[in-house]
Nucleic acid binder design. Sequence first.
DNA 1: TGTTTATTTGTGTCATCATGCAACTATTAT
DNA 2: ATAATAGTTGCATGATGACACAAATAAACA
Lengths: 123, 123
Amino acid sequence: MMTQINKHLKKEQKGEDRGCCGIPGIPGPRFLKAFSDSTRLRILAHLVEAKVPQMVSEIAKNFPIDVSVVSRHLAILRDEGILLAEKQGKEVYYSVRYEFLSSIFRGFASAIESRCPPKEKNG
Amino acid sequence: MMTQINKHLKKEQKGEDRGCCGIPGIPGPRFLKAFSDSTRLRILAHLVEAKVPQMVSEIAKNFPIDVSVVSRHLAILRDEGILLAEKQGKEVYYSVRYEFLSSIFRGFASAIESRCPPKEKNG
DNA sequence: TGTTTATTTGTGTCATCATGCAACTATTAT
DNA sequence: ATAATAGTTGCATGATGACACAAATAAACA
């Protein structure tokens, strides 16, 4: 039996963070902060390449830090909706929410691009 | 006369940060960290909406923090290639590098999306 | 020259964060 | 029930970061 334990839904709905800058499509700073740590980025990349849900202890084997730290990093990514966590017995399997992630960043790119003023002929 | 003062070129070429996770298309943590602060995000959004290069003191008027702090935030965004800085006399005009920004995030989205494993029929 | 204005940089402070270790919870097995 | 395993959380610490204020730099002007 699978149990989803994503509390990110609550936080997203609180809306204290998303859209803080007033431009739709630009994610909130807390979401983007989740990518600001090199260890967290590597953990994300590891899961992206794994293509399969991985448990915490397996992930932690790839990094020279304590399992508890990995667990915390995973929780941060999960809380922002970047990862999905599924508990199966003792283990918790983390996987990437590909569509969510790509849609957010594609929306970010579009938000910026759509506001690009037409180029003047200079130079 | 315009003088570009973007030192980000050096940092980008150092390569200590970009591609740190090994997956091409995923930006480095320092680049993403530039977006992790709410003030910095608002400054960026302000410039995006301005659509025209703005000088530091003009930008600072929109935020309840010291000009020096705004200057530092702008420098961080400039060093990551997010903003362009052009000195004109005493003033320094900052503007958004729209194409650069959107291409980075679109590339990020594509890097994630392209690694999304095919969906299984579950549930 | 000296003066004013725009921006950057030095410095100290307070808050946040990544980390390790220990304790705790939850689940499985004996 | 007891033990073992997986994961999370409490707590202390060192590093980093945002901020204010002051000093330094740079450019225009008297």
